[in-house]
């Protein structure tokens, strides 16, 4: 009886490896390779950009001219000049206007979605915002050219509708969805007990929002704005299409400007590989990379600060 039962139990081969073991190992390996290669690619890209740009930075770069001169004349054979002040001014003015457009818009939308809308309205709005985020930037550029341009010409009676105003608005609208989404998350992270406590003391809806919810969610909101800035800063296609591309420090919203990103996109194809022009464009790339990195890092630190508090 006993012997029979022992015989029926499974054989004890402890070194047996079944299918599950191999699948497990294979998946672990794939995930590892995926993760490592992502890191390697990022480092690789960084090294590549730095290497291409380094030749310019240690060579012909004149820091003073680079940052203080308005003359960007990389293709001149006698007298090439690499002043990016105009490009920086272009990026700054467009991004700045974009923030003026999108910060109130996005925070307003986030407050409405997070604090007022309920049920189906709220869900539909969130889907709508996500759809907006999915519009490709070339489509935004197209909207800038074909809709905003005639609109601005009509409304302000100016000869050209392409420039800071046009690209700023377009970029603002582009940055709005991500800003709205992150800001809404920040508001959602504010515990409802705070709202309840304030309401129980007789605070009106707006008093609750201004005196409790916004201060409590402030770090997340700052992060939302910063990420929006980062988005605007790095955007290329829409700016290329809607900004007019004249290198200058704008004095009116209708002026045409050229952004750093647009310059790289427009000129890199024509610059002979290894030439000073080519390397100067990579230096611009490093500049973009560094600024974007700082913006994102700041946003990250701000959010971490929010978590700790």
């Amino acid at each position: 009886m006993l012997a029979k039962r022992v015989k029926r139990s499974a054989p004890m081969d402890l070194d047996h490896r079944g299918r599950a073991w191999y699948i497990d190992k294979a998946v672990t390996f794939l995930v590892f390779v995926g993760g490592i290669s992502a890191i390697i690619f990022i480092i690789g890209i960084f090294v590549f950009i730095t290497k291409e740009g380094a030749g310019f930075i240690v060579g012909p770069l004149n820091v003073r001219e680079f940052f203080a001169s308005l003359t960007w004349r990389p293709t001149s054979s006698q007298n090439p000049s690499y002043g990016v002040l105009g490009l920086i001014a272009g990026t700054a003015s467009v991004t700045g206007l974009a923030m003026v457009v999108s910060v109130p818009f996005s925070l307003g939308a986030a407050i409405f979605i997070g604090e007022f809308a309920t049920g189906r309205l709220r869900e539909s709005l969130k889907v709508l915002v996500e759809l907006l985020a999915a519009i490709p930037s070339v489509v935004w550029g197209f909207i800038g050219l074909s809709i905003m341009n005639p609109l601005i010409i009509d409304m302000f009676d100016v000869p050209v509708g392409i420039g800071v105003l046009n690209s700023g608005i377009i970029l603002g609208l582009m940055a709005a969805p991500i800003m709205t989404t992150i800001a809404e998350d920040a508001l959602k992270a504010v515990p409802d007990t705070y709202r309840e406590a304030a309401e129980a003391m007789g605070a009106t809806k707006w008093q609750v929002i201004f005196r409790v919810v916004l201060p409590a969610g402030k770090n997340g909101l700052v992060a939302a704005v910063l990420l929006g800035v980062g988005r605007g800063f790095g955007e290329t296609m829409a700016v290329l299409m809607a900004s007019g591309n004249a290198i200058q420090i704008p004095t009116s919203p209708f002026d045409s400007v050229r952004a750093i990103t647009a310059t790289i996109a427009a000129e890199l194809g024509d610059a002979p590989v290894g030439s000073d022009h080519y390397r100067a464009l990579f230096t611009l790339g490093i500049l973009l990379f560094v600024v974007t990195f700082i913006i994102n890092l700041t946003a990250d630190l701000v959010v971490k600060g929010a978590r700790r508090a």
């Binding site: 007990t193 705070y194 309840e196 406590a197 304030a198 309401e199 129980a200 003391m201 007789g202 605070a203 009106t204 409790v212 201060p215 409590a216 508090a309």
Partner: peptide
């Protein structure tokens, strides 16, 4: 006016809920 009502009728909750101020 709910705001006035709640001024005259205060409430203390189960879990202390001071505002993050």
């Amino acid at each position: 006016e709910l705001s006035q009502l709640r001024r005259h009728v205060g409430m203390v909750f189960q879990r202390p809920n001071p505002l993050p101020l």
